[in-house]
Each structure stands twice: as structure tokens, then as C-alpha cells.
């Protein structure tokens, strides 16, 4: 009961703060004797309005996601996916990729856990593509800076890329391109360690997990948010309108592949990259091009490829990168063409 009261109080405070962001930002720049008509005033207003807005949404979404994740322990997800066929399995895997707790340092135990339990390779890849790409940080930032339409599009297209890339990789039958030691692991499912599917938890434990998730995630990314919004604010105030249209606009055919290629070696979380992307778009960059860049930075990263190299031979790594990059490329072009 006490928890419920605390939760409701926090929710009310959250709503009150969220609905007064603009008033506070206006008051702040007025106190600094600035107006939005000057570049400095515009930049400072952007920073004072967007930083708390992004952080508040991040707090809310990460908390809810922390609770949802308690229902989807990796062991349960694996049980749901074992023996699934291509197609349905890929769709389910991509969806579960969003709600199963995942960090790139656990990619290998998870990968091996899936493969040895009989989850097909293509289905495993759908999970591995969706899990990092569609995460609560990216969704919170897109929602905050672009609105729900773009956040929903990112979610839908991210799922589409994960599902179709997994189906394509599955169709290539590349099981023999796993590293030898991985193929040598074969244990039956009967002797798995303690069943840990997370279903037995009570709500006190789930709320505590939500709070823990907030501490871990927001504690890790808040600084990136502040720096990212700061850079975005500077672009907003000082970079002239439409300066980017000539080389990042929708009529530049090579902009999308260039954005994807540029994104692969780059490694950043969504917290640092979305505010900058948002500012670029305001200055004339095309939405499809910038979204492709963002997906490439988040879904394909050099450190994660190095980790996967331990379980995959290079042929499979190259296929993985090629298929995912092609998917992102298509997304970029479709977006630019539609909007």
C-alpha cells in the first residue's frame, strides 16, 4: 500500500513537471535577459526546454521497461523461441528482442544459449538485430524530440529490418560458419540450471527491478543526453537554415549509403546521437538519411562485431553486416521517398 502511494505521488510529480517545461524554459531565458530572437537565446531556450523533457521521458520509459523486462528473462524467451520456424519465429524473436533484457557483453552467452536450445540461426539473428536497435533509450529520445509518429515508424521499420534480415540469413543455411567450439557444444535441455523464468516474482520485486533499471540506465546515459542536447542546441542557434540540404537532403541519391557506411564504425548509444540528428533535420537534412545513419550507428557497431567474431566465422559476420546494412539502406530510401 505504501508503495502504491509513493508510486502515485511520483507519477503526479512527473506529470506536473512534464506539463510545465515550456513555462520554466521561458522563465529561465527571461531571467538571463535573453530572447529567442537571438541565436544565443534560441540555443539556450532549446537546451533548457529539451534537456529536462528528454530526461523525464527517459525516466518514465526506462522504469516501465524495467518492469516489463522482469516478465521476459532470457531463459523464458529462449523457451518461447525454441523450435520455431522461419517467419513466425523471426517475428516473435524480433518482438521479444525489445522486451528481453540485453547488453552487448551478454550477446555471446545468449547466442549460444539460443543455438544450443534449438532456436534456428535466422531466428536468433532476428533477436540479435532487434535487441540493441530497438531499445528504450532510442524510443524515449525519438518520442521526446520527434514525436510519437517518428518513434512508431522507427519501431516498425526496426522490427521489419530485424525480421527480414533474420529470414534472409536463415535462408542461406550458414550453420557451418559458426566457430568450431560453438558447434562442439551440445547439451540436452534436460540439465539446464535453476529455472529462472522470472514468472514467480511479486509486484514489489518487479517495481524494485524498474527502479534498478532506472538507476543503471539513466545513471549511465544522462551525461550523453546533456552533451547531445547541448551540441544540438548549438546547431539550432548558429547553423543557418537549409545549409545541409545540399548534401544531406532527400534529392542527394548517395547520401543514404554514405550515412550507413559512416555509421558502421561509429559507436554511440541513442542518447548521444538523437539530439544531434534532430538538429540536423531542422537544418535541412532528410529524415530517411538521418534515420538510416542512426540505425547504422546503433545496430551495427565495431565493438559488437568484435564480440560476435568469437562465435561466428568471418563469412557469417560479413553476411550479417551486409544483410542488415541493405535493410537499413532500403528504410532510408523509402523514408526519403515517402516524406
Amino acid at each position: 500500500m505504501r508503495q502504491l502511494i509513493l508510486l502515485v505521488t511520483l507519477a503526479v510529480i512527473w506529470l506536473l513537471s512534464y506539463s510545465h517545461l515550456n513555462t520554466v524554459a521561458d522563465a529561465l531565458i527571461a531571467a538571463m535577459q535573453l530572447t529567442r530572437a537571438t541565436p544565443l537565446g534560441e540555443a539556450v531556450h532549446f537546451f533548457c526546454y529539451e534537456t529536462p523533457k528528454v530526461l523525464l521521458l527517459l525516466l518514465g520509459i526506462v522504469f516501465v521497461m524495467g518492469i516489463i523486462q522482469t516478465f521476459f528473462a532470457p531463459e523464458r524467451t529462449r523457451a518461447l523461441l525454441a523450435g520455431r520456424r522461419l517467419g513466425v519465429g523471426n517475428a516473435l524473436a524480433a518482438a521479444l528482442g525489445i522486451v528481453t533484457p540485453f547488453c552487448s557483453c551478454s550477446a555471446i552467452p545468449l547466442f549460444i544459449g539460443f543455438i544450443t536450445a534449438g532456436v534456428p540461426l535466422g531466428v536468433t539473428f532476428s533477436f540479435l538485430i532487434a535487441a540493441p536497435m530497438i531499445n528504450e533509450i532510442a524510443l524515449a529520445l525519438l518520442l521526446s524530440l520527434f514525436g510519437w509518429q517518428v518513434a512508431a515508424l522507427y519501431l516498425g521499420l526496426g522490427l521489419l529490418v530485424a525480421i527480414s534480415a533474420g529470414i534472409v540469413i536463415g535462408a542461406f543455411n550458414m550453420e557451418h560458419y559458426l566457430q568450431d567450439w560453438v558447434r562442439a557444444i551440445h547439451y540436452g535441455e534436460d540439465a539446464a540450471p535453476q529455472p529462472n523464468d522470472g514468472l514467480a516474482l511479486d509486484w514489489t520485486a518487479r517495481l524494485a527491478a524498474g527502479m534498478k533499471h532506472v538507476r543503471e540506465i539513466v545513471g549511465k546515459v544522462w551525461l550523453y543526453v546533456v552533451i547531445g542536447v547541448g551540441l544540438g542546441a548549438a546547431i539550432h542557434g548558429y547553423v543557418p537554415e537549409n545549409v545541409l540540404a545540399s548534401f544531406m537532403g532527400r534529392d542527394v541519391w548517395w547520401a543514404v549509403p554514405a550515412a550507413v557506411l559512416l555509421g558502421i564504425p561509429m559507436y554511440s548509444n541513442a542518447a548521444g546521437i538523437v539530439p544531434i540528428v534532430q538538429a540536423l533535420i531542422a537544418k535541412g537534412a532528410a529524415l530517411g538519411t538521418t534515420l538510416a545513419f542512426m540505425m547504422s550507428v546503433i545496430a551495427l557497431s565495431a565493438p559488437e562485431l568484435l564480440i560476435l567474431r568469437k562465435v561466428l566465422r568471418w563469412q557469417l559476420i560479413v553476411t550479417f553486416v551486409g544483410v542488415v546494412a541493405t535493410g537499413i539502406l532500403v528504410v532510408g530510401y523509402v523514408f526519403n521517398w515517402l516524406l
Binding site: R78, P101, S106, P109, G113, P193, Q194, N196
Partner: peptide
Amino acid sequence: MEDIMRYRIMATPGVVIDGVVVHSGGI
């Protein structure tokens, strides 16, 4: 990684006490 996977955990870090896996995933 080969040694870690003998304990069949699906997320690191894992903790094993006297041969029994007591924890996996997160701090």
C-alpha cells in the same frame, strides 16, 4: 568464453558458489 559457457548461463556476469550457479545477468 568456452569455460563460462560450461555453466550454461545466458547473461553475464554469473556467480557460482561451490559449483552451483546462483546468479546470472546484471549486478
